[in-house]
Computed example of a mutant assay.
Amino acid sequence: MFSNHLYWNGKLLLLILVVGLLSSCSQSQKAFLADKYSDFPKEKELRGEVIELDTALFRYPFRIRIKGDKAIVMDLHGSEYYGHLFQYPSFRYLSSFGRRGDSPTEMLSMENFRFHNHKVWTLDANKSELTRLDFSSSGDSLLREETVT
């Protein structure tokens, strides 16, 4: 009696699976999905242009931040400096900052940087330090002002 009950339950389960599979592959379901994704968000195109420089500044450019007429590019594996300051939008090179090294004024790493109130803050997680940099009077370089541990 028990095996006969399992036999019919198995057949019923197989019938439900076949009906479900056939109904999910129907044309009306495909049409529904096509209509659902036809009004996707607007597409945008990103374009760039190659700017020729006479030196290779970056090993691994990682983050870019733009504020006003200044752009900073962070080099994740910089050989000498972690940050590079550019004039924006021309991307004319101005200076580098965040010298790589072990001395108190140098950085072991640069994890991130932010613009805040016309200043630049950098994070050196390996030394557990936040460094505040300010623009020089000519605006073409960043000078170290303060380090917070």
Rank of each mutant, 00 (worst) to 15 (best):
M1Y: 10
M1H: 10
M1D: 10
S3K: 15
G10S: 11
K11A: 12
L13N: 10
L13A: 07
L14K: 04
I16P: 04
L17T: 11
L17Q: 07
G20L: 14
L21H: 01
L22G: 06
L22N: 11
S24K: 07
S26W: 01
A31V: 12
A31I: 02
K36Q: 11
Y37P: 09
Y37Q: 05
Y37T: 07
S38W: 07
D39I: 12
E45H: 05
G48Y: 14
G48Q: 11
V50E: 14
L53M: 07
F58K: 10
F58E: 04
F58M: 04
R59K: 12
R59A: 11
Y60M: 13
R63T: 13
R65C: 03
I66V: 15
K67I: 03
A71F: 05
L76I: 09
S79I: 09
S79T: 13
Y82S: 06
H84Y: 11
F86Q: 06
Q87I: 00
Q87G: 03
Y88E: 07
Y88S: 05
S90A: 11
R92T: 10
L94K: 00
G98W: 02
G98Q: 04
R99C: 10
G101L: 05
G101P: 01
G101D: 05
G101F: 04
S103M: 10
S103A: 10
M107K: 12
M110L: 14
F115A: 01
H118R: 09
W121S: 02
N126Q: 15
N126D: 15
K127T: 07
S128N: 12
L130H: 02
L130F: 04
R132P: 03
F135S: 01
S136Y: 02
S136E: 08
S136F: 04
S138E: 09
G139H: 05
D140M: 03
D140N: 15
S141E: 15
L142A: 01
E145N: 05
E146T: 11
V148E: 01
V148A: 00
V148T: 06
